[in-house]
Nucleic acid binder design. Structure first.
Lengths: 341, 341
DNA sequence: ATAAACAATGTAACCGATAACATTTATTGT
DNA sequence: ACAATAAATGTTATCGGTTACATTGTTTAT
């Protein structure tokens, strides 16, 4: 692999001239430029960007902490990030953290070892909180999707509380009075926010909130299936289930159908995220659409602003949601269906 | 950010000693080691890995060309790669190429600019074929999942032809004689291989292959839906549809149900990949399971072997498939159902 | 006691590009 | 024609580690 010196020798100029030919060609005479260009081609010279990055102290790498790349929603977010990063000449170091704090800390530390310039965190966990407590909020990080309670960095989020309220109102308008909820992990702020929105709507509607109708899940299909199973074997009446994401909704529907229930005639089910599968499920899923790609794009652009020093750290972007009504939700049955059969 | 020289000064030793304390502590006396360690802690020194990578010429980065991270199957492959890479101290530079050749060439070239050590390509396209034709097969690349026709590098694949034969035999055994196929893009070798396997099985069973029953798709839900739509509006009898992946199968099922057809009583549908949704669809999908994570893991390990110079380039790993029979396939109806109603 | 062998540490070149500064060459004005 | 200025090019320190080689200090063997 040839280096800049070999090119300089072959072209009969100095290394500075070669460097200038590539960086500021207008400073080099056309004659010299031609010589250099020829030498570059002859040697098939490609600048060693590792050297450039080392010297400049800018890696143009961004570490992205993703809880699970296998999640369809995150896959869309990643796509948005990818495009925004490419447009600005940045590369993404994607890390599938499986929600493991230690893993996130390790990878976030790549900015300390000069392997990356900044971090995008898609989970409500501060990977720097540990041993760099003092530096919190000063490190180039952007938090998107699932937001920290007291973020010191720019954030990109949805108003989950309001979105959950909108969904709940939709169910209430259909006449549902006994609404169960399949939640995400208790540790997730998303879950707390969506639950608050759910409660808000119930209160407005004059319905009472029932703790026994809250079921735990972990955003996977299987957990939705299992939660539905628990719903079927308890005694409270239920005419609708508000699931905190589409995967769990689809898992729940699978279990409800296996029990012989019709959706939405016997029981309504709603999701959250509007993943591609939502439109093609049977019945198509009522859900909340999030601008996933825009989450990624915005997060990356904010981070790049931070890196360029031209962003205020207090930026909090809130993206719009959209209630998508399909056929998995319908009017509440005249009288509660017996779930345990 | 402190550097090795500051540490050396504070500890009262030379930079070489600091370096050795970190790299080969056994060469440093315990007394000195303690001094250095203390200085490192005091300054919160973290080696600049960019400098290390630059000096060593090894980036420990691997470029991964993924057609779409949004594809659930690839998401699993990525997860496998991630784990294998982390175990060996490598980072992944994930690139969502959208199947664009130019994009792939640009990113693959990162190994020329010393930004990455090797490439994992998940598509049947040689990103080096362009202007580096001479070097083909000499560059550190591993091709997985969708394989080049004449690969010059190690590959990891499934025997797609045999898997498709197994699936087709399953349908034939159920009595299906009029089997349609929803294919992937014609450019994909996967499609060619699976079609060959499909033909093999038909021939063995003494059934004739019918070109009119081949429908194009692009591995997305929507394309499966659209293809099913075309199947419904043509005149040949069809009692089963072999879809080349699960997404298209789920899309097709959605359309068939909308037409009032029962699955599998009226028409059977099979998929390929066994994504998580396959188990929870209605009906659960008969499909071919691929060890997705193992694809990723094997690809990364092969590449690392290549990078270490201890792998022969002719390695071709073939991973096992598994026919998963669920309820989307069933006995062929006694007499062909009228599709166009 | 002294040479030989070994352990511990230091010195400085090096990786490849960039850019501040120095130097040479060309152009302009009078 | 010659100084003044501008344009083009060259020289070299620098980024932060690693490591070959040199040097100094400590044991061991005879």
């Amino acid at each position: 692999m040839s280096n800049i010196r070999e090119v300089a020798d072959l072209a009969g100029v100095s290394v500075a001239t070669v460097s200038r030919t590539l960086q500021q060609p207008e400073l080099v005479s056309p004659k010299t430029r031609a010589k250099v260009t020829r030498a570059i081609e002859e040697l098939n010279y490609k600048p060693n960007l590792m050297a450039v990055k080392f010297r400049s102290g800018k890696t143009h790498n961004i570490v992205v902490l993703v809880p699970t790349v296998a999640n369809v929603f995150f896959a869309r977010v990643i796509r948005g990030m990818q495009e925004a990063a490419a447009a600005e000449g940045y590369s993404l170091l994607l890390v599938n953290t499986m929600g493991d704090n230690a893993t996130e800390q390790i990878y976030a530390r790549m900015i300390h070892t000069s392997q990356a310039d900044g971090v995008v965190q898609l989970r409500a966990f501060n990977p720097f909180s540990d041993n760099d407590a003092d530096e919190q909020g000063l490190l180039p990080m952007v938090n998107a999707c699932e937001i920290l309670d007291t973020p010191q960095c720019p954030t990109v989020s949805l108003d989950n509380r309001l979105a959950a309220t909108a969904m709940t109102e939709h169910l209430v308008e259909l006449g549902h009075q006994h609404i169960a909820m399949i939640k995400g992990p208790a540790s997730s702020p998303l879950t707390r926010e969506r639950m608050l929105g759910f409660k808000d709507a119930l209160q407005t509607a004059g319905l009472k909130f029932c703790e026994e109708l809250m079921f735990d899940g972990d955003f996977t299909l299987q957990s939705g299936y299992d939660a539905a199973d628990r719903i079927l074997s308890q005694s409270h009446p239920v005419s609708a289930i508000f699931c905190e994401n589409d995967e769990m909704a689809l898992g729940a529907i699978s279990r409800l159908k296996a029990a012989g229930l019709r959706i939405p005639e016997d029981i309504s089910v709603s999701g959250f995220d509007n993943i591609a599968f939502a439109k093609f499920s049977d019945p198509p899923l009522t859900t909340i659409a999030q601008p996933a790609e825009e989450f990624g794009e915005t997060a990356i652009n904010l981070l790049i602003d931070v890196l360029k020093g031209k962003a205020k750290r207090a930026v909090k972007v809130i993206l719009p949601y959209q209630l998508i009504i399909r056929n998995s939700t319908g009017p509440a049955p005249a009288q509660p269906v017996n779930l345990t059969r």
